[in-house]
Computed example of a mutant assay.
Amino acid sequence: MPLDLVTLRCLKDNYAYLLHGDSGTALIDAPEAMPVLTELEARGWTLDAILLTHHHADHVDGVAEIVAATGAKVIGAKADASRLPALDVSVRPGEPLEMLDEPVEVIDVSGHTVGHVAFHFPRSGYAFTADSLMAMGCGRLFEGDAAMMWASLSRLNALPEDTLICSGHDYCAANGAFALSVDPDNEALKTRIKEVADAHQPCAPATLAEERATNPFLRVNDLRASLGMQGAADAEVFARLRRMKDDF
Rank of each mutant, 00 (worst) to 15 (best):
M149F: 12
F178Y: 09
G144V: 06
G125F: 11
A174H: 06
L19W: 04
R43G: 03
A199E: 05
A79D: 10
T113S: 04
I165S: 00
L100I: 11
A232C: 06
A77H: 09
D234I: 07
D162R: 10
L218K: 07
T163N: 09
W45P: 04
L52W: 01
L156H: 08
M148N: 00
G24H: 03
H55W: 15
A199C: 09
V67C: 11
H59F: 15
L87T: 05
D101N: 09
L51E: 03
A118M: 03
G137I: 07
C166W: 02
R240M: 11
V104D: 00
T214R: 04
Y126S: 08
G144P: 06
L51A: 08
D29C: 14
S226M: 11
L153S: 06
V114A: 09
M1Q: 14
T163I: 00
L51G: 03
E32C: 13
Q201C: 08
C166H: 07
R155L: 11
K78S: 15
V182W: 05
I193K: 11
V104L: 07
D108S: 10
A235R: 03
S124G: 13
Y171D: 13
F248R: 06
A72G: 05
V63Q: 03
M244H: 07
D61G: 04
R123D: 08
T25R: 04
E236A: 14
A232S: 05
K190H: 10
C138G: 07
S110D: 03
A225I: 05
D58F: 13
G76Q: 12
A177E: 10
A235C: 02
A86D: 06
D48G: 09
D198V: 07
D108Q: 07
V60R: 10
F119W: 12
A16I: 10
V114L: 15
A188V: 12
E236Y: 00
D246T: 14
A204D: 09
A42W: 02
Y126F: 15
Y17C: 01
E39G: 06
T70M: 08
G137H: 02
A49W: 02
V74Y: 04
P85F: 02
T70W: 06
T207A: 02
P216H: 06
D145P: 04
A77K: 07
H120F: 15
L5R: 11
H116D: 12
V114K: 14
V196I: 14
E210M: 15
L27E: 05
L11F: 01
R140K: 13
M134L: 13
I50H: 01
A64F: 00
T46S: 11
R83W: 09
F217Y: 13
C166P: 01
D22I: 04
A213H: 09
F128K: 07
M149Q: 15
L3F: 10
